[in-house]
Design a protein around this nucleic acid. Structure first.
Lengths: 164, 164
DNA sequence: TATTGTTATACTCTATAACTATA
DNA sequence: TATAGTTATAGAGTATAACAATA
């Protein structure tokens, strides 16, 4: 419990921490360019992919439903999101992006290209390699057997996951 | 609408997003285990590595100095951090972790082993590779210590064949 | 009775601006 | 004048608990 991991692992963990910090900074900056907070941007992007009830939004955002009320309130007051009744269950309210909300989400996506820029420093082969390593690290789409290394062009094709 | 980056890049960006999301969840969870918020945990970990003035804390945390006042206030009221005068400049206050604060930071570090666990799925060679890719991606100079640059002399070089 | 969404409450984080005490 | 830290203020996110409408 007190034993330190080997130095290599510590170094990689630190690097991941740096990636995380930089990603977050840039995400907030991109959101701010559209006068959105990070939480608002995340919710809007989620809705742009698929309209859903408040409850499900809370699950996706991993927060309490009461918080979603406030975030949607602010987006709605700016005309980016709408609440619609669910004909099937009158308790449910569906959050739906307006046309402007959809457009904003799209702009947001391109603003988020920041994430692409640092990747531009890597060759295609390196990106493939990075993809495979991250997939293995996250336990996605690859064998749990850690005894053979990935081959470019080889093993894992689309795990088609989502979320962020 | 706007041209999308190539699919490979999109995939890698998504993976990084997943890493970021998971890292954050786990960081908050680890902090909460010690009844700390994420911001408090980050500040405490920073101080555990090196005591510093309030101003520098703000720079490290990339927030306004006024915020640091509050965060340190809460940590101080719990006996985890202390404010000490700087003999050289009486305007400056140095934030210093108490013994208990140091211990908490240490526990925090081990709680943060979540970051180590997924890396356990990678072999040492793969971790080295991942390290180099992340360094290049982040625009960090190549490792100062060549000791852990195995046969993968060229970062753009393929994976596998010597490794793992 | 259970579920959906909301309200009310309290706390933390955040930025801005004004203030103090030094320098 | 400039700097370090604080205070005051306001807005946003968060969790908890209580509530209304509906199932």
């Amino acid at each position: 419990m007190t034993a330190r991991p080997d130095p290599l692992t510590v170094e990689v963990v630190d690097l991941i921490g740096t990636v995380v910090a930089r990603f977050h900074e840039e995400y907030e900056r991109a959101a701010a360019e559209h006068s959105l907070t990070g939480a608002q941007a995340r919710l809007l992007r989620l809705l742009a992919m698929e309209s859903m009830p408040m409850r499900k939004l809370a699950q996706c955002l991993k927060c309490e439903p009461s918080n979603v009320t406030g975030i949607v309130d602010r987006l709605e007051s700016r005309g980016l999101v709408e609440r619609r009744p669910d004909p099937a269950d009158r308790r449910v309210k569906l959050a739906v992006p307006t046309t402007e909300g959809q457009a904003t989400a799209e702009h947001l996506r391109t603003s988020l290209d920041f994430a692409r820029e640092p990747l531009g420093r890597l060759t295609a082969a390196e990106r493939t390699l990075l993809k495979q390593l991250l997939q293995r690290m996250l336990g996605l789409g690859d064998a749990p057997d850690a005894s053979d290394s990935p081959e470019a062009g080889g093993p894992a094709e689309g795990p088609g996951r989502g979320g962020a």
